[in-house]
Write a protein that binds this DNA or RNA. Structure first.
Length: 840
RNA sequence: GCGAGAGUGGCGGAACUGGUAGACGCACUGGACUUAGGAUCCAGCGCCUUGAGCGUAGGAGUUCGAGUCUCCUCUCUCGCACCA
């Protein structure tokens, strides 16, 4: 019978659904395992990246199930987001309709791939009120705890998407979605106080080392950006105000010879007013503001960017030396980091050095490297020295180690009220307001009398009305929909206006993994028992593009929800993270714009889901990029058909035997023994490759090797009873080993060989157990080296004594030839593996 | 610039604690079967000057023995990027 993947696959997909094969039961004695892949945005069609991602997860979920775990393997939809609105505008269709029809299409595609999700109990869509209601509940809780607050600030604004973007959503000055140039706009927005958790988010990264890829941990660490230093106040020469700077090098303060400010420093106006150079200064400020709001500021290479500045005409005082320092405005000072002011220490900071050289500002060496042959001085300083050393020319601190000096200076600052020790973070609070329609309404009401009032919890969810039409330019219809915004103030009962901004979609995806443990719960967002059973996620799998955004937000949410009483005992959402590589074609990432895409649906039609899954897993290890090739998938298809053919040839000729059941038997033919050995070796290798090393490609290779052996040996094996038993056992083993990868093929052949009646579905079989005894060989090949180079091989009984094998090794023809004229100095012996004759 | 990762046949990739480099697959070559073969099966397949030869980006080192460990250099990919 011809292999017809379409029929077989749909048959088994129906059986699995009818029999609830992959439904998860809460509790029970089995150990729990939560296997999660990043849920998709319902764009309408799955792509190869999805297929790869979900195939990886499915293999693990199926394997863990076979290993005896109670596995939670959920699937859902990241339903809110901009593309739905854009599609709505383009196709004159409501975002909800677009989204839900996409979900239907994609669900069918995922089901057609045979992924073992517990659809019935887990499937959710974040755009459903049953889900986003809890976003709103959490928001209120965060407000209550001071974790959600409103502030007016200059925000990243995408003119095309008509919305504010979080810092994380601005890439090189461009909108991460549409590549428009991002502008700055003053707006009042809602923020989550993620900075409250900066310390925990940083410290807990240590607990993820090992479970997470190092580079993701590093990226998060850099993003959080902790700097330990001091704040120093420099009093203005005129008046009573002072300029506060943040520095990590307070030990160099004696070398601070000028002050540099960003163009947006609040004191600027006072410093420049009435000075002779006021006009030029203002012109420079304007120019800087222009540049820094555009993409140029982000795209320029800092090393090539010319340092520029102007003198304000004002001075401040160095609190240590008492000297007057000119106050400059400089283009390299960032308004958003630290205090927006930097003390200029040209001798020990390269930027300050460049700046001082250009504008002839004084340079003073205040740190001497310990090992310098000639001390640093103006004469020999051609670049800033930013290394460690001894303090120099620094009053009472001269001669002190600079690290100790940091402490001493900070102490002095604190004693004299001129500053303090402080920690500065790169991480900033998370702006979650979006001026968009297709998102979770923010449950807040503005009342003329009472101000900002949270919606009452019993009034949740604030439903996003589905009868509105998106405006053609992308603006949200909510601010124009009276039936939405007009409401009663929950506090005074007077007229109120509902917040018309919606939440960033990253809020939705920041806790979905927790909701998956009790997707159907209606009276609470989470079920404490389920949380305890399943969380944290044992294995999370997805693309590295979420290394910062989603993973950081989710980690924050986990900690915040823990502190709000929803996630007791949970500090981190994902114990282990696997970041899969991209799917490439001709060396470039598959993308519609490049036109180098392969549609999974076409491939499934042509080869079947099993082959598509197999190829995605076989072509490269999970973490690496993999190049799609037509000949590559042909190869996987050949293998699948080869297994099918092998089955055809064996049908009716074998006794029914489960995996690894052919016992050790004195009557076994040598080939039957060899077959058994290979069977057990393959089980061992594949089990370790899948469960321990996540090297699915080599697990498949091991299975192929076993199939190749059976193919080659089948005729001879069929001739004896022991051969038939060995063959039957090994073939059952092949099917169980294939079950995680090509589950439909495995089920079908399992059934055809009458194994279902005896053992149940192969999907619910135990992973075969190999025995050490079966792996033992009587005759071993031992490698003989002369001075570390391979010169011969010996077939010897296992466990042979050293003296004996040495004798045999030295006698071996090629070995003795290589030893001619040499004296044997030493013979090294690695039992049952190799002999190395050291001679000279 | 800083950080992380990676360099192995014509290609994708194996080699797990230092112990037979190139598993498995693709491509290619030869053969078998065949009316036919883009099917299938069998065999071959790192390189060359065929040797007591060379070979894991290059160079040094440690070791009886190095793709694997150490140091240096080069190249590529990704991330951050004037962070004070």
């Amino acid at each position: 019978m011809k292999y017809n993947p379409g029929d077989i696959e749909e048959k088994w997909q129906k059986i699995w659904a009818d029999e609830d094969t992959f439904n998860t039961t809460q509790g029970g004695d089995k150990p729990h395992f939560y296997c999660l892949e990043m849920f998709p945005y319902p764009s309408g069609k799955i792509h190869m990246g999805h297929v790869r991602n979900y195939s990886l997860g499915d293999v693990l979920a199926r394997f863990k199930r076979m290993e005896g775990f109670n596995v939670l393997h959920p699937m859902g939809w990241d339903g809110f987001g901009l593309p739905a609105e854009n599609a709505a505008i383009q196709n004159n269709i409501h975002p909800a309709e677009w989204t839900f029809s996409n979900i239907r299409a994609m669900r069918a595609q995922l089901q057609r791939l045979g992924f073992s999700y517990d659809w019935k109990h887990t499937e959710l869509a974040t755009c459903h009120p049953g889900y986003y209601k809890w976003n709103q509940v959490f928001f209120l809780k965060f407000m209550e705890k001071g974790l959600a607050y409103r502030k007016n600030a200059a925000q990243n604004w995408c003119p095309k998407c008509n919305t504010v973007l979080a810092n994380e959503q601005v890439e090189e000055g461009l909108c991460w979605r549409c590549d428009s140039k991002v502008e700055q706009k003053d707006l009042t927005q809602w923020f989550f106080r993620i900075t409250d958790y900066a310390d925990q988010l940083l410290d807990d990264l240590d607990t993820l080392v090992g479970g997470w890829p190092e580079r993701v941990v590093t990226m998060q660490r850099n993003w959080i950006g902790k700097s330990v230093g001091a704040e120093i106040n420099f009093a203005l020469a005129e008046g009573t105000d002072s300029i506060s700077v943040f520095t990590t090098r307070q030990d160099t303060v004696f070398g601070a010879t000028f002050m540099s400010l960003s163009a947006e420093h609040p004191l600027l106006e006072r410093l420049i007013k009435g000075k002779p150079q006021e006009r030029e200064t203002r012109a420079f400020i304007e120019k800087l503001k222009q540049e820094q709001s555009g993409p140029v500021a982000y795209m320029a290479n800092p090393d090539l960017m010319e340092k520029e500045g102007v003198f304000t005409g004002s001075y401040c005082k160095n609190p240590f030396t008492g000297e007057l320092m000119p106050i400059w405005i400089a283009n390299f000072v960032l308004a958003g980091y630290g205090t927006g002011a930097v003390m200029g220490v040209p001798a020990h900071d390269q930027r300050d050095f460049d700046f001082a050289k250009k504008y002839s500002l004084p340079i003073r060496v205040v740190i001497q490297p310990r090992k310098a042959e000639t001390p640093l001085s103006l004469a020999n300083l051609d670049a800033a020295y930013d290394g460690p050393g001894l303090m120099f020319d620094s009053g009472e601190y001269t001669g002190m180690d600079n690290e100790a000096g940091k402490d001493a200076i900070a102490a002095w600052l604190e004693r004299n009220g001129k500053g303090k020790r402080t920690v500065n973070w790169r991480l900033r609070d998370w702006n979650i307001s979006r001026q968009r329609y297709w998102g979770t309404p923010i449950p807040v009401i503005y009342c003329e009398k009472c101000g900002v009032v949270p919606e009452k919890e019993e009034n949740l969810p604030v439903i996003l009305p589905l009868d509105l039409k998106t405006l053609p330019d992308g603006r949200s219809p909510l601010p124009y929909a009276e039936e939405f915004y007009k409401c009663v103030c929950p506090q005074c009962g007077g007229e109120g206006r509902r917040e018309t901004d919606t939440m960033d979609t990253f809020v939705d995806s920041s806790w979905y993994q927790a909701r998956f443990t009790s997707s159907r719960k209606e009276d609470a967002p989470l079920d404490p028992a389920a949380v305890k059973n399943w969380l944290p996620v044992d294995q999370y799998i997805g693309g590295v593009e979420h290394a910062i955004l989603h993973l950081l937000y989710d980690r924050f949410f986990t900690k915040a929800l823990r502190d709000c009483g929803y996630l007791e005992g949970q500090d981190e959402p994902f114990a282990n993270l696997l970041t899969q590589g991209m799917v490439l074609m001709d060396g470039a990432k598959m993308s519609k714009s490049k036109g180098n895409t392969v549609d999974p649906t076409d491939m499934i039609k042509k080869y079947g889901a099993d082959t598509v899954r197999l190829f995605c897993l076989f072509a490269a290890p999970p973490e690496r990029d993999f190049d799609w090739t037509d000949s590559g998938i042909e190869g996987s298809y050949r293998f699948v058909q080869r297994v099918w053919r092998l089955a055809e040839e064996l049908t009716g000729k074998l006794p029914v035997a489960g995996p690894c059941t052919a016992g050790p038997d004195a009557a076994q033919t040598p080939l039957a023994r060899e077959t058994r050995l290979r069977e057990h070796a393959a089980v061992k290798k594949a089990g370790e490759d899948i469960g321990v090393r996540f090297q699915f490609n080599t697990a498949i290779a091991a299975t192929m090797e076993l199939v190749n052996h059976l193919y080659l040996a089948k005729e001879e094996l069929l001739e004896s009873a022991s051969g038939r038993t060995a063959l039957s056992s090994a073939f059952s083993t092949v099917l169980t080993m294939l079950a995680p990868f090509t589950p439909h093929l495995a089920e079908e052949l399992w059934e055809r060989f009458g194994l279902t009646g005896r053992f149940g579905r192969v999907s619910t079989m135990d992973w075969p157990k190999y025995s050490e005894e079966a792996l033992r060989r009587d005759i071993i090949t031992v490698v003989v080296q002369v001075n570390g180079k391979l010169r011969g091989k010996l077939e010897v009984p296992a466990g042979i004594a050293q003296a004996e094998i040495e004798k045999a090794a030295l006698a071996e023809g090629n070995v003795s030839r290589h030893l001619a004229g040499l004296t044997v100095r030493k013979v090294l012996h690695v039992p049952d593996k190799l002999v190395n004759v050291v001679a000279s």
